[in-house]
Nucleic acid binder design. Structure first.
Lengths: 168, 168
DNA sequence: ATAAAGTTTCAATAATTTTTGAAAGTTTAA
DNA sequence: TTAAACTTTCAAAAATTATTGAAACTTTAT
């Protein structure tokens, strides 16, 4: 396969994966484009390559910066802003894990903790079932949280080394 | 907090979490409702409790069965179909992991493997960058895949015991 | 100070996804 | 066989989410 075709295919696949996981397609595609680009790109170049509007490109780039996945670069003697992606895939994974943990897992953990203190009749099957489900989910979510916490601090080789060694 | 209020709050939180992770809100809410219900429920009861239409309820229940998260139950002497959820949270986590792995991770792994064999000029920085990114992503995705594979086969206590012990 | 180059905002529009509801289909009991 | 009870389907409508594009804003060089 040719490089140009391969790039398009990767951008498409990354966009699809993103949209299946609640990340807007364009954001994933812009990220993909910068990930596989050797050079930092301007807003113009991104707009052109992905056929998106200036407004969309601008908002998407801002969001990606907010996620800690890309950065602005200023080239000496140039007015234009260039954007480039962190190419370290382990950093990317940690950054995404960190953001989603903060935005999504933590609010749910908070609600689950509140719900743990529901009061009711210890003889009521509905009450018993509710309490047990919340307790079990809470425990699982807590384990996920702890694992992500470890991942956020860990070096890639250490992390996978440990996880995969145990599972061998 | 009262049980009734707590149930509503849980259903809302579960629905929100689902929609943030690419699972339709109603599907997550129906799942939540059945998870915290001591009894199996009919389509009518689900429609009423969540204020959704018959068509929506039917499709959603079918999808949940397809995900292996709920089952139909037939009560002796009754025409109606009842639905109940697997209450084992570890089973639920594995089931979701299994389905998403199959539907989303595996197609991406397939594309990544195809893209690994892109051909081009070994001196071209664009080619070098592309190859390296694909290779790194492939490796990470492979590790995720192996870990999920292990999780799918594992008992909960063994899995978390191993993971968390290593991370202590 | 001003004008060109570049960036940001956001109301309006478009695209996508979800939901409805009524008709068609199926099953069961008599 | 019939009709009531129940389930499924899917085209149309509604709701949600993403995108556009032009105006406003900012920065820089002269």
């Amino acid at each position: 396969m040719e490089l140009a075709a391969a790039k398009l295919k990767f951008i498409e696949a990354w966009g699809k994966l993103g949209s299946e996981w609640g990340i807007n397609r364009t954001m994933a595609q812009v990220h993909a484009l910068l990930l596989i680009s050797a050079e930092a790109l301007t807003t113009e170049e991104i707009m052109e390559q992905l056929s998106i509007s200036r407004g969309n490109a601008n908002m998407t780039l801002r969001d990606l910066i907010g996620w800690g996945l890309i950065e602005k670069q200023h080239k000496a003697g140039e007015r234009k802003e260039y954007f480039f992606a962190d190419k370290d895939v382990w950093n990317i994974a940690r950054q995404v894990a960190k953001e989603r943990k903060k935005r999504e897992l933590e609010p749910v953990l908070k609600v689950l903790n509140e719900l743990s203190s529901v009061d009711g009749d210890e003889k009521d099957p509905e009450y018993i079932t509710f309490k047990k489900s919340i307790k079990d989910i809470n425990k699982l979510a807590g384990n996920v949280d702890k694992t992500l916490e470890t991942m956020l601090k860990a070096e890639e080789s250490w992390f996978w080394g440990s996880v995969l060694k145990v599972f061998k």
